[in-house]
Simulated assay, not measured.
Amino acid sequence: MADLTQSDWVNQLKEDENAVILDVRTAAEVAEGKIPNTLHIDIYKGQGFVYEVDALDKSKSFYVYCRSGGRSAQACNIMNQLGFEKTYNLLGGFNEWTGDVE
């Protein structure tokens, strides 16, 4: 896992043709807005989160975010334990996001 500032996260994401953006917030948080083109899996699903994430393509790069960066760091750690090698945590999360929102 790597913790990236928003500018590093966005720049690296633009260059990564094998990228998936993963939002690990709750459905209520997502309803307030999200980064475009994201996959949503709520980390609060517990074991359900683990099952859903484990089914994803481990060869891809995952750019993970939550509201402030804590849950996404936890999600990256879980993913690393499941065999994902490229996980990138957005420092500051959606609270500090200044890019496009849908």
Rank of each mutant, 00 (worst) to 15 (best):
residue 30 V to K: 00
residue 28 A to D: 08
residue 61 S to C: 04
residue 102 E to Y: 13
residue 73 A to R: 02
residue 93 G to M: 00
residue 61 S to I: 06
residue 30 V to S: 06
residue 53 V to T: 01
residue 27 A to W: 09
residue 63 Y to I: 10
residue 26 T to C: 05
residue 5 T to K: 09
residue 76 C to S: 02
residue 13 L to T: 02
residue 83 G to R: 04
residue 95 N to D: 09
residue 7 S to H: 08
residue 27 A to L: 09
residue 13 L to E: 02
residue 22 L to M: 04
residue 32 E to R: 11
residue 17 E to L: 14
residue 3 D to H: 09
residue 70 G to N: 14
residue 73 A to F: 10
residue 2 A to P: 04
residue 60 K to N: 09
residue 54 D to P: 14
residue 56 L to N: 09
residue 69 G to V: 07
residue 83 G to C: 07
residue 62 F to A: 10
residue 88 Y to K: 11
residue 61 S to T: 04
residue 19 A to K: 09
residue 54 D to L: 14
residue 90 L to R: 03
residue 72 S to C: 07
residue 12 Q to V: 12
residue 64 V to K: 08
residue 43 I to W: 03
residue 12 Q to D: 13
residue 3 D to F: 10
residue 85 E to D: 13
residue 72 S to R: 05
residue 12 Q to C: 12
residue 43 I to K: 05
residue 23 D to R: 05
residue 92 G to M: 06
residue 92 G to Q: 00
residue 31 A to L: 09
residue 74 Q to F: 14
residue 89 N to M: 00
residue 13 L to K: 01
residue 92 G to R: 01
residue 19 A to N: 00
residue 73 A to M: 05
residue 69 G to P: 02
residue 94 F to M: 02
residue 90 L to N: 02
residue 35 I to P: 07
residue 7 S to N: 12
residue 2 A to E: 11
residue 26 T to D: 01
residue 11 N to R: 08
residue 59 S to F: 06
residue 34 K to E: 14
residue 65 Y to H: 06
residue 32 E to G: 13
residue 40 H to G: 10
residue 45 K to F: 12
residue 25 R to V: 02
residue 4 L to E: 00
residue 35 I to H: 01
residue 98 T to G: 08
residue 28 A to H: 07
residue 94 F to S: 07
residue 87 T to L: 05
residue 51 Y to C: 11
residue 75 A to V: 03
residue 90 L to T: 03
residue 95 N to E: 13
residue 35 I to F: 01
residue 102 E to F: 13
residue 97 W to I: 08
residue 89 N to K: 02
residue 45 K to H: 13
residue 88 Y to H: 07
residue 53 V to L: 06
residue 101 V to F: 04
residue 97 W to L: 08
residue 60 K to C: 08
residue 88 Y to A: 01
residue 87 T to S: 06
residue 91 L to G: 06
residue 52 E to T: 11
residue 38 T to V: 10
residue 74 Q to A: 10
residue 75 A to R: 03
residue 12 Q to A: 14
residue 76 C to P: 03
residue 6 Q to T: 07
residue 22 L to V: 06
residue 52 E to W: 09
residue 49 F to C: 06
residue 57 D to L: 09
residue 11 N to D: 15
residue 40 H to P: 04
residue 87 T to H: 04
residue 41 I to H: 11
residue 65 Y to C: 08
residue 8 D to A: 05
residue 94 F to R: 01
residue 23 D to Q: 01
residue 31 A to H: 11
residue 38 T to P: 10
residue 100 D to Q: 15
residue 80 N to P: 08
residue 35 I to T: 05
residue 75 A to E: 07
residue 3 D to I: 05
residue 56 L to Y: 09
residue 82 L to R: 04
residue 61 S to E: 07
residue 59 S to I: 13
residue 18 N to E: 00
residue 5 T to G: 12
residue 81 Q to S: 12
residue 13 L to W: 04
residue 68 S to K: 07
residue 7 S to I: 14
residue 50 V to M: 10
residue 81 Q to N: 12
residue 84 F to P: 06
residue 68 S to P: 13
residue 21 I to R: 02
residue 61 S to Y: 09
residue 39 L to K: 11
residue 29 E to G: 00
residue 55 A to G: 11
residue 67 R to H: 12
residue 2 A to M: 12
residue 49 F to R: 01
residue 14 K to A: 05
residue 16 D to F: 01
residue 57 D to Y: 00
residue 93 G to W: 01
residue 45 K to T: 15
residue 80 N to I: 11
